[in-house]
Amino acid sequence: MTKKNVPPPVEEIDANIISDDPWDGLKCFTDARIALGRSGVSLPLRESLSFRLDHARARDAVHSPFQAEELIRELETDGLECLELHSAVSSRDEYLTRPDKGRCLSEKSKARLKEYPHKGFDICLAVSDGLSSRAVHENAAPFINTFAETLASTSLTLSPVNVVRNGRVAVADEVGQLLGARLSVILIGERPGLSSPDSMGIYLTWTPQPGTTDEARNCISNIRKAGLSVPEAVRKLAYLIEEAFRIQGSGVELKDRMGDNYLPFGREPASLTQV
């Protein structure tokens, strides 16, 4: 027997591949993705995947179908009348590329509002998926319930909840006008950030009508679990509504000077104290 050729031993590679950055203590000062370390000069896989997960969540928030029926069922169970409406957009891709169409109602939805027997509300309420259906799924129903309850203690009249698929903020101008409302409020999914895919915004417009521009609106943004809470957002909206009726206007002329002790419409409904 001949002796086999034994290859020279190959040294095992150190499994400590990532160069860590010795300034990770600074992470307490910012949520920015600092001190990520590197593989060579490149991003370590754990960071690459963590970024990809956040992006996936934000994408899902944009593209998940709006569960409008579920929202309507939930609100109707709570005794709120709802109207299901569509913008003039025919698909989600069209929604993303044609903001002009997202600002108008479809012909059918327009007709539905025109035929609606009651007109002339103080406040017209609309809700739309906007750029994050997830934001609306998670935040709209609790918000609307609390808001409706708060408003019930006042003499202000509220429209049915107009649930609009594929709407932009300005779609509430047309809805409000067709229902003869003095003021319109729309809850809408905001453009999702990498760390905030679930953020809902609210826009308020005095004497809504198509063609209204953004400087005539007031906005409350970042309503989500890790952001502005529902009770706090309702309090803010109540303040803006009171001010809008007082000055008969909205937008740049309506300044947010809400004090810490402000009580919506002078009262404190039980639900507002729950956090």
Binding site: R38, F51, H55, L194, S195
Partner: peptide
């Protein structure tokens, strides 16, 4: 940092991208 601008809410290029 990490291509994630936490103020402007968009994704740009990172320090790692530049080094790459």
């Amino acid at each position: 940092p990490g291509a994630d601008d936490i103020m402007l809410n968009y994704q740009s290029t990172s320090f790692h991208d530049a080094a790459y």
